[in-house]
């Protein structure tokens, strides 16, 4: 009787463990940025600084993720892995050249095993 109980528990444990693995595998560590500052680098094009700063704002803010999208559903955690990293990305606007310097905090998203909803 007891042995059957233990076997059943073991089977259950294995089942749960494997599903947790599946969950972890499916949600492979996702990296995301939260942007804290940005700057326009005109380069050789000498673009209008206000337009450049505005478009770089859009460019860098678009790289940034809203942390509430991660924490609101429940079951996920954000872990900071870099603070104030400086990324230089091309502005990528069809009408204007130059680069954008985006200052970002880098995070990794993990399944929250501790505080499951």
């Amino acid at each position: 009787m007891i042995r059957q109980g233990i076997l059943a528990l073991l089977a259950l444990f294995l089942l749960l463990a494997s599903s947790a693995d599946l969950l972890a595998a499916a949600a492979a560590d996702v990296k995301l940025y939260i942007v804290t500052d940005y700057r326009y680098l005109p380069g050789k094009d000498k673009g209008d600084p206000v337009m450049g700063q505005s478009l770089c704002g859009t460019r860098c803010n678009a790289l940034s993720t809203n942390y509430l999208n991660i924490v609101e559903p429940g079951g996920w955690r954000l872990i900071k892995i870099a603070d104030g990293r400086v990324l230089t990305v091309p502005l990528n606007n069809p009408f204007m050249g130059g680069d954008c310097v985006c200052v970002v905090d880098e995070y990794v998203v993990k399944v929250d095993h501790l505080n499951k909803p």
Binding site: N69, E72, P73, W76, P117
Partner: peptide
């Protein structure tokens, strides 16, 4: 890719 987290809700 971000909305899929809300499936559980």
């Amino acid at each position: 890719q971000e909305d899929s987290r809300f499936d559980v809700n």
